[in-house]
Design a protein around this nucleic acid. Structure first.
Lengths: 343, 343
DNA sequence: CTGAAAGCGCTTACAG
DNA sequence: CTGAAAGCGCTTACAG
C-alpha cells in the first residue's frame, strides 16, 4: 500500500460532508439525498478514492474472502473445480484465496491460520486427508467449512462430490454388457477416500453380476500417469490377464494404455479400459477414452454456493447438520472399450 | 468471523501485561524479557488467541496477499504455474488470491479493485491482453505488478516468461534435421502475444534455413484441443500437404494428431508433429509427443520472487525500470517426429 | 524492558 | 437526511 492513497476523509473534505455520509453514499445510497450523493460521487472521482477493504473488513468483522485448500495445485484435475469455485465466489463478491496442503510450509498450523486468524470467512477443502481436529480448535468458534470432491467423514462437515461408487459401477456394467467377465481395477492412492469409494463401487457392481474382483487384478496406483504405466507393466506380467480394466482416474488409464502401446499391446483390441473423471484430453486421446464423466465445474460451483449460504446464515462449521450433496456422473462411451466374444 | 474470538486485550488481561507487550512478544520477542514472554505465550494458549490479520494489516498498511490474474482458470496449463507461485508466495508468508479475467463479472473495474483497493500488496498477471492503462490509474499510486507467461509490452512492466521464439525455432530446426522441408504451423489465438512470438520464431528459423512459411500451411487455432482437430481437418483438405507441423501448444498438437488418427492418417509415419509446453500428458500420449519443454513451475516461482522483491523495495509498478526474465526452454524428442527421405 | 496513548480507515448506532 | 463520536483489533513511536 502507498500512503498517497486518498481516504474517506479526503473525500469528505472534498464533498464538504462527513465521513459517515460518504460511507453511506457508498454502502446505502438510498439513505442519502440525491444532491449529496452526486457531490460525493463527484468528490470520489476527483480524489481518485477507492475503499480500503482492510479497514472496511475490520470494522464489519468479515474478510470478504474464502480460502480453498488444494492437495497439490500442480495437478490439473483441480483447474475446473477452482474455476467453478471462483466463478461463484466472485459473483458473490468474495475473493478466493488458494493454499496447497502438500507444500512443505503448509503444516496444519499454517493452514489452520486461515481458519482461525480471520483471514477467510469460510473454507473449501479439496483434501480429504486433513484430520477431523484440524477443523475445530479447543475453545474457539470456527468459520464454515465445506468439503469438495474429497471429504473426511469424521469431521462431520458438509460435502459436495460426485457419485464415486455409482460411477465405478457404471464402468463395470458397461464392460459386462460388452461381454467382459475378467475385469481388473487400478487403484488411486492408498488411504484416499476416492480410491476407497471407487473400489467399493467396483466390487459391489461386480458382486451384483456374480463376479469377484480378483486380488491379482487389483493394481496399485496414485492417480499419476506414471502409476498407470506401472499398472500396465503389472498387467503385462500377469499369467492370466483381465480382458478389461477400470481405472480410478483418467490419467492412470492414459498411462496404462500408453505403456501397453509401447509393448505392442493394443487398446481396445487386446484389452478394454475405462477411466474416471473425463479430463479434457480423454476425448482426444488415442484411443479416445471411455470414462465416467464428472461435472467438475458444477461441483466447484455447488461447493462455493453451499459455503456462501452457510456464511450467510452465520453458522459455524459444526452448528448446522452437515449436508452431503452428491452430483450425478455419467458414462461416456468412446473408443477404449470394445465387445468381447463370450468366454 | 465470530465475536467469540479472543483479542489481544484478553491475552493482555490474562498475562497481566499491556497489549503493547503482547504485541511485542509476538512480533519482536527479543524486545521482551524471558519471563514476560513465557507468561504471554501461556496466556495465548489459555485463551486460544490468534492474531486478527485484518487488524494487523490495517495497522501495518499492508495486506499480506498477492493476487494472480488468470485468463481462464479452467485451463490446466496454469496449474503448475500457480503451484510455483503459491509455493514461493506462501514461503514468504504471503497469501495468494486468484481471479479469472475471463469471467463475465471480471470487468476491468472489478479486477482493478485488487490493485487499487488495498486488497493485495502486488499482482501477477498471466493475461497479456489487459490494456496498459488497466495498470495505472490517474492520480493514484499502484502496487507492484509482474507479468508471467504472457505480457503486454505497452504496460512497461516486468515480465517472466519462457523463450517463446527460441522454442519455436528449436522445433523447426529439429524437423529440418530430420529432413523435413515442407513445414506447417498451427497458430494460437489471434492477438495473443505467445501466438505472435511463436509464429515469429517459426518464420525466423525457417528463413534462416532458406525456407518460407507457406500461408496455406498456417492453420488458425486458439490453444484448444478442438482447434487442433480442426487444423487436422484443414491439413487433410490440402492438395499439397506439409510433411511436418509445429503447433503453438501441446493441446492443439494432440487434437491434430487425434483427428488425423480418426481419418486413418498416422503420426509420425505420415506427418511429424511438434508441440509446445510439454504438458503432463505429452509423454504418455500416443505417439508420445515431441515438444518444447517449458519450465512452468520455475516460471511461476521466478515471477513470484520478482514480485516479492519489488514489494520489498516498496517500489510501485512504474518506478523501477521493468525487467524481463526469459527462462530457457528445451526440445524433448519423443515419438511424434520421424526422419523423412530427402524430397 | 514496559505501558499509555494515538491512530490505521472505515462503519454504525445514536441523536437531531 | 446528516453529523459527531465510538470502536473494530491491532502496532508503534514516545516516554520512562
Amino acid at each position: 500500500m502507498n500512503k498517497a492513497f486518498p481516504t474517506i476523509q479526503d473525500v469528505a473534505r472534498a464533498a464538504k460532508v462527513s465521513t459517515a455520509t460518504v460511507s453511506r453514499a457508498l454502502s446505502a445510497p438510498e439513505r442519502v439525498s440525491e444532491d449529496t450523493r452526486r457531490q460525493v460521487i463527484e468528490a470520489i472521482e476527483r480524489t481518485g478514492y477507492a475503499v480500503n477493504q482492510t479497514a472496511r473488513n475490520l470494522r464489519r468483522k468479515q474478510t470478504g474472502a474464502v480460502v480453498v485448500l488444494v492437495p497439490n495445485l500442480g495437478n490439473p484435475f483441480f483447474s475446473k473445480i477452482l474455476a467453478g469455485i471462483e466463478a461463484t465466489a466472485s459473483k458473490a463478491g468474495l475473493n478466493v484465496l488458494i493454499a496447497d496442503t502438500r507444500q512443505p510450509h503448509a503444516g496444519a498450523d499454517r493452514l489452520g491460520e486461515y481458519l482461525h486468524n480471520n483471514r477467510a470467512d469460510g473454507m473449501i477443502v479439496l483434501d480429504g486427508s486433513l484430520s477431523a481436529d484440524f477443523f475445530s480448535r479447543p475453545g474457539r468458534a470456527t468459520p464454515p467449512v465445506v468439503f469438495c470432491c474429497e471429504w473426511n467423514d469424521n469431521a462431520g462437515l458438509p460435502s459436495v462430490r460426485c457419485d464415486n461408487s455409482g460411477g465405478a459401477a457404471l464402468a463395470v456394467r458397461h464392460l459386462h454388457q460388452l461381454g467382459h467377465r475378467r475385469i481388473g481395477h487400478i487403484l488411486g492412492p492408498r488411504d484416499n477416500v476416492l480410491t476407497h469409494e471407487r473400489r467399493r463401487g467396483t466390487e459391489a457392481a461386480l458382486a451384483k453380476l456374480g463376479l469377484a474382483l480378483r486380488p491379482d487384478w487389483v493394481f496399485d496406483g496414485d492417480f499419476s500417469l506414471a502409476a498407470g504405466a506401472q499398472a500396465g507393466r503389472a498387467w503385462l506380467a500377469l499369467a492370466e490377464r483381465p480382458t478389461a480394466v477400470t481405472s480410478s482416474n483418467d490419467e492412470m488409464a492414459c498411462g496404462f494404455i500408453a505403456e501397453l502401446h509401447r509393448h505392442g499391446v493394443s487398446v481396445p483390441a487386446d484389452v478394454s479400459v475405462v477411466g474416471f473423471d473425463d479430463i479434457d484430453i480423454a476425448e482426444q486421446f488415442i484411443p479416445a477414452l471411455t470414462t465416467v464423466h464428472q461435472p467438475r465445474n458444477d461441483i466447484g460451483e455447488t461447493a462455493a454456493a453451499a459455503l456462501i449460504s452457510r456464511i450467510g446464515e452465520g453458522k459455524a462449521g459444526l452448528e448446522t447438520p452437515a449436508r452431503t450433496r452428491v452430483l450425478d456422473v455419467e458414462l461416456v462411451v468412446r473408443a477404449s472399450t470394445r465387445a468381447i466374444d463370450q468366454q
